[in-house]
Write a protein that binds this DNA or RNA. Structure first.
Lengths: 259, 259
DNA sequence: CGACTTGTTGAATAACATCAACACTAGTGG
DNA sequence: CCACTAGTGTTGATGTTATTCAACAAGTCG
């Protein structure tokens, strides 16, 4: 399982909006620093607040570009971001999608190694990188937390290498759909429990081109395999941005290559 | 440049054996903790020493397995390690090669996400993971350093995604050869400066199968493209584990997809 | 509505994989 | 020293999957 991986934080020790123990009334958690709620107390969160500033972008706007000095770290509060790298001739690889609660800028030492663009309107908190790393001394929990999140990203990246290097188109698409489903269920733990039927309803905010560039395929191949999965009854396509997973087990078997 | 990436630490702030400022006489640096020499003083390095134990393995031996509890972190002192992930039916993806100075186990939260095997005999230092993360409080520099190394790994992983998702076989092989060359020059900065001719001599400790599984190709395709590069005069094959790069610029152009 | 973007489908092509044979190398023992 | 063997690497012929090129359908927005 989890043979696919986006860039989404998940697994032990990884902070998600849904993990926040402060509940509905906590201003810090609802609005900012969702990833830090479980490791920092209110005073420490306040300290973090004082370092960060709000940051918003609209659909299709660029948040940071490959090669630019990586002065800031971002915490995505709402919306969806795509991270991509390009070859000189225009070929593009999307290295991950970010959703509410995820961090942007962990994979940089000096310059951003990728371009980040808003797929939907996004709200973020922005931290000056050097101030944040300075705080690792004052707040040891913070450093450990950031390390843990970066590790989780790295694990996801390695799963994606397996997908890109060794999986067939059908396996890639199945892996992708399951990972998107997993993210959407997980992140909804703050909301009232969903009826079981909805658990298989997956929203795909990105275009077919984005999916293709994420899976290392062409749009046509992605489209063909969507239709194929639909015709074989494993999924139901409701417009191009909504999918119902009708047989998650079968999808999982395909994703894992268990033929 | 650096469009390829192994798992090797490189770039700003990333510790390499060659970066050590302590010189030849420093026991810590020559024997252990090479990655920490520049951020910790001798007393702190001594503290690190007290946490770590020596660890050796022979060629083809397993150091840790995918799914195993990730209790330890390793610092590779000498030798070469391959990291790999497998699908149930045996398809394998090598996610990186580790060389002297590199860390093993950064990409784990609870369980190892990959199998690590010795390609050559290896010598390592082993740290209990929980003791090391505890020290992040006492030695803030340590946490920052580990974060920086993990970031570097993540950057490399993203470059490899671009390679696996979007590059042709020829581009992959060229990228690989150049990244191997870069690692070997860089790591030899402690040794007397090499004559320029040697700069283009690259040793490949791994088998063709390993290269194929790293590049997401088959052995046959790798072999064919080695021959092709040799016939077109860009490289010189001296046995299967030694390559001379005769036209690094042309290789770079191929690697980047600048046709 | 009409123009533009996004997504789907079909046919031809190319790149890489697969299958199979052979060559080279290193190690073993007579 | 020379077979003998097993492992690794190379080369050739064929097959398959995904890409490319092209047309069309379905949304989206003025």
């Amino acid at each position: 399982m989890d043979s696919n991986g986006g860039s989404r934080s998940q697994g032990t020790g990884s902070g998600r909006a849904g993990d926040c123990q402060h509940g509905e009334v906590c201003g810090h958690c609802d609005v900012r620093h969702t990833a830090m709620c479980n490791v920092l107390n209110d005073a420490e969160l306040e300290k973090l607040n004082s370092l960060s500033s709000d940051f918003k972008r609209d659909t299709q706007q660029i948040i940071c570009s490959e090669g630019e000095p990586a002065d800031h770290l971002y915490n995505l509060r709402s919306g969806v971001i795509r991270l991509s790298k390009m070859l000189p001739d225009g070929r593009r690889q999307i290295t991950g999608f970010l959703f509410g609660g995820d961090f942007l800028g962990l994979a940089c030492n000096e310059a951003y190694a990728y371009t980040a663009e808003a797929i939907t309107p996004v709200e973020m908190c922005r931290f000056p990188r050097h101030k944040l790393t300075q705080m690792f001394g004052e707040l040891p929990q913070l450093g450990g937390r950031v390390f843990s999140m970066t590790s989780t990203e790295l694990e996801a990246a390695q799963s994606q290498m397996l997908l890109l290097g060794r999986k067939t188109a059908a396996e890639r698409l199945s892996s992708f759909l399951l990972s998107m489903a997993q993210k959407q269920h997980h992140s909804s733990t703050t909301e009232p429990a969903q009826p079981d039927a909805d658990k298989q309803e997956v929203h795909l905010p990105m275009s077919r081109t984005d999916i293709a560039d994420y899976l290392g395929l062409t749009v046509e191949t992605v489209s063909r395999h969507f239709t194929k999965l639909a015709k074989s009854g494993l999924i139901d396509l409701q417009g191009s941005h909504k999918v119902i997973l009708k047989d998650a087990d079968a999808l999982q078997a395909i994703a894992d290559g268990d033929k």
